[in-house]
């Protein structure tokens, strides 16, 4: 199959998935108990006129099917609706929080992939030695630790007991900095604990996958052939083993995105980090359905998009996929 046909098929698959999610998203919140109008207006004393006005403003006076149609129509023009709680466009509210989360997730993901893959390679290469056994156990422990627990332990040690890093937030509001350098280091200090925590959470899995994948590859016949041809250790690893062993890691990165969103809720809550995870939690407690709906949609698109990219990358990394 040619590249264009392949892309087209993948794209259509992704679009169908997104549409199904949009559909479920919409009706999931509509079948939840409680009239959304009660969330919008916390004042039962409101006049019937005013009530009708608000219903109209939020489009709640129409039937569900019509509401869905309007929602779809607005969606295509980039309108995600209006937040019940903030009374502002969902798009603006979500976009306000995206940078904080992307910064946190992005840094932690890159760090954990680089360090995780490196460690995985080393452990695989030195399999059976003490380095491998200790490293493997530590990775297993990290992999199985609950996110919020690690986060709290990190805070207890570094921000409460030693007090060398701040407790949380993205900075102390209302602080004047002596220089741009002081501001930058201050921000790095605030970023440090949440990022390291997230990295610790993610790293175990990458180490484990990388290690086992590399071990498997090293048992392949072509590795023996390469060795027999006199390829040195360095080239054996870099040119022959790694490219093949990287495949599962690419899949993992894409799949992990959904999991990372779950983790970000916990990390952002412990560290009072003003990102999407906290927005989701607050929206849930406030029954801010339009915001939740918008967030779910965004996450869906991110996860599906990542998998789409992984598929393409796969084709590039693994010529077998083409046939």
């Amino acid at each position: 199959m040619n590249m264009r046909g392949y892309l087209l098929r993948k794209f259509i698959q992704a679009s169908i998935t997104i549409f199904i999610v949009v559909f479920m998203n919409f009706f999931l919140f509509r079948i939840m108990p409680g009239d959304p109008i009660r969330v919008l207006i916390r004042n039962p004393k409101i006049s019937a006129d005013a009530l009708e006005r608000v219903r109209e403003q939020f489009g709640l006076n129409e039937s569900r099917l019509v509401q869905f149609w309007i929602y779809l129509r607005d969606l295509f023009s980039g309108d995600l609706g209006t937040s019940f709680n903030y009374r502002q466009p969902v798009w603006d509210i979500v976009m306000e929080r995206v940078p904080a989360t992307v910064l946190l997730i992005g840094t932690a993901t890159v760090l954990s992939i680089i360090i995780g893959v490196l460690l995985g390679v080393i452990f695989a290469w030195k399999r059976g030695t003490r380095v491998d056994i200790v490293g493997l156990s530590v990775s297993l422990v990290l992999y199985s630790m609950p996110t919020f627990w690690v986060a709290i332990i990190m805070v207890m040690i570094f921000a409460v007991y030693w007090q060398i890093f701040p407790l949380g937030g993205m900075g102390m509001p209302g602080t004047f900095y002596a220089s741009a350098w002081a501001e930058l280091t201050s921000q790095l200090r605030y970023m440090f604990l949440p990022t390291i925590t997230f990295t610790l959470i993610l790293i175990g899995e990458y180490v484990l996958i990388m290690r086992s994948s590399l071990l498997e590859v090293m048992r392949e016949d072509y590795m023996l052939t390469a060795r027999a041809k006199g390829v040195n250790n360095r080239n054996l690893l870099l040119k022959h083993a790694l490219p093949n062993a990287m495949l599962p890691v690419v899949t993992l990165i894409a799949i992990n995105l959904g999991f990372i969103v779950g983790g970000t809720i916990q990390i952002e809550t412990v560290f009072s980090w003003p990102g999407l995870g906290r927005l989701m939690y607050t929206a849930l407690t406030n029954r801010d359905y339009p915001v939740l709906q918008g967030l779910f949609l965004l996450i869906t698109i991110a996860v599906i998009g990542a998998n789409f990219c992984a598929d393409i990358l796969y084709r590039y990394l693994d010529p077998r996929v083409k046939s």
Binding site: F165, M172, F176, Y177, A178, S179, A182, R189, F192
Partner: peptide, 25 residues
């Protein structure tokens, strides 16, 4: 790798040590 870890550690200590650089308010 060891070198990298050392650099990383040094960097984090640097950040940790940089506290209190806020201007006298």
């Amino acid at each position: 790798l060891a070198l990298m870890l050392v650099i990383l550690l040094a960097f984090s200590l640097l950040i940790a040590g940089c506290g209190g650089e806020e201007a006298q308010d």
